[in-house]
């Protein structure tokens, strides 16, 4: 008759078959087997299969003892590994060095660009440097050459005018217009 706790004993019986149970559990299992015919049959089958399993274990070990040591081959491979790691020791620095060089190059280029982008003082005095002014680029230098549109642009008065900020003047013109125009008197 199948007992509720037979399932638990089945696992213990499997361990008992390979002598993997502690003494206390073993006694408990043995007592159960005496009283349970199904577990007793199960135990007998387990014994048979376990005995077959254990009897089949011998040959592989015998075979392994007949073979020569693998150390000679392993030693050869180890030398290769060591050689590779020695060569790889400086190669290991290669990415870091490359990265540092790249960073340095970026810094140098960036600083160059920044230096170029700051407008020299003489350029601020050039009045004719506007969108309409033709600019020619020579191949020898990256510096843009400003070509005057006409001879008038070289007139000192215009240069003088260019230095003056026209915003206050525009504002004064507007005030003048208001005072003289139709809104005069308001």
């Amino acid at each position: 008759m199948w007992m509720n706790n037979c399932r638990k004993y089945r696992a213990d019986l499997a361990l008992l078959a390979g002598n993997d149970l502690d003494a206390a559990t073993r006694l408990e299992v043995e007592r159960h087997v005496v009283t349970c015919p199904e577990c007793r049959a199960h135990w007998q089958e387990l014994q048979s299969s376990q005995q077959a399993l254990e009897q089949s274990r011998g040959t592989a070990v015998v075979v392994s003892l007949e073979t020569s040591s693998v150390w000679v081959d392993v030693q050869r491979q180890i030398r290769v590994v060591d050689e590779r790691s020695r060569r790889g020791s400086w190669r290991g620095w290669l990415p870091a060095v490359a990265m540092a060089a790249a960073c340095l190059a970026v810094i140098l280029i960036t600083s160059d660009i920044l230096r170029e982008s700051t407008v020299p003082p003489e350029f601020t005095r050039q009045p004719a440097y506007s969108a309409g002014t033709p600019v020619s680029f020579s191949t020898s230098s990256a510096q843009p050459t400003i070509v005057p549109a006409s001879a008038e642009e070289l007139v000192p008065e215009r240069l003088e005018d260019a230095r003056v900020d026209d915003r206050p003047r525009r504002r004064s013109n507007r005030a003048e217009r208001l005072s003289n125009g139709p809104y005069r008197g308001f």
């Binding site: 089945r10 696992a11 213990d12 499997a14 361990l15 078959a17 390979g18 993997d20 199960h42 089958e45 387990l46 048979s48 299969s49 376990q50 077959a52 399993l53």
Partner: peptide, 19 residues
């Protein structure tokens, strides 16, 4: 230990059936 018990039980089942 649990796997071992299961493995022995499975081995027993197949072994008994084949026998």
């Amino acid at each position: 230990r649990w796997r071992l018990a299961e493995a022995r039980t499975k081995f027993k089942q197949i072994w008994t059936r084949r026998q």
